[in-house]
Each structure stands twice: as C-alpha cells, then as structure tokens.
C-alpha cells in the first residue's frame, strides 16, 4: 500500500480552447482603446478655438456676445490719438450709424 495519497491530476485546457482564449484576449486588447476613445466625452462642436498652454489643449469658452467692457486707468503715455465709442453690434444700444470704412482685427487675408 502506498504511503502517500495519489496526487490529484490538474485538468489541462485543450489546445483549441487555449487558442480561442488567445484570440479573444487579442481582440479585446486591440479594440479596447478604440472603444474607450469613442465612449469618452467630446468637446462641443462650436466655432471656438483651442489654445495650447504649454503642451495641454485647453478649450476656450466662446462667448459671441462680448458685453462687459472694463475700463482701466489710462496708462502713463497720455495723448493717444484714439478714443472709443460704442456702436451697433457692440456692448450697448445700437446707434443708427453707417458701418465704419475700416476695421481692425488681426491680419486679414487678401481679397
């Protein structure tokens, strides 16, 4: 009579099952990033721009109506040949005036 208990034999997975599991694992690994990207929240589709502070994209809040004008103390260089008025389309009540013949807003593309 044997002095020890016979060792229980571990059940082996068949080659076919192992192959199937490998395929499933590979497919999940391949598809997971796509699924994560497609399920993650996206920025609203607006006409806004994004500006990069350093390396990180940051969404700029787009406010098409610029209403608040903050007027600060005039700088030290006095005597500027320009002053401001408000007009239609800006902060306050529209003024019945023709559009200005010239505007400024950054580098305008050619006609």
């Amino acid at each position: 009579m044997a002095m020890t208990e016979p060792t229980s034999r571990r059940r082996r997975i068949s080659k076919g099952a192992l192959r199937t599991l490998a395929w499933i694992g590979g497919a999940v690994g391949f598809l997971f990033p796509w699924a994560a990207l497609s399920l993650s929240p996206k920025p609203a589709a607006t006409a806004g721009i994004q500006v990069l502070p350093g390396n990180q994209p940051r969404e700029i809040v787009v406010r098409h109506v610029i209403r608040r004008i903050v007027v600060e103390e005039p700088g030290p260089a006095s005597g500027a040949g320009v002053a401001y008025v408000t007009s239609g389309g800006s902060a306050t009540a529209p003024v019945a005036a023709p559009p200005p013949p010239v505007t400024t807003g950054g580098s305008t593309p050619p006609p």
Partner: peptide, 28 residues
C-alpha cells in the same frame, strides 16, 4: 476723428467696439 471698428475675434463680421481715430496708427 474717423470711425474704426474693432472686430470680434470670434466673428470678424461683428464689431465689438468702435474707435475714433484722430491721428497716428492702430494695429491688432
């Protein structure tokens, strides 16, 4: 002075403020 419109950076067809230029130059 002469009217100069300052364009809205989000919509250049809109004017956010109007200036009166009496001399010199403006740049944006």
């Amino acid at each position: 002075g002469l009217d100069v419109g300052v364009e809205d950076p989000f919509d250049p067809s809109r004017e956010i403020l109007r200036l009166k230029l009496a001399s010199g130059a403006l740049a944006t």
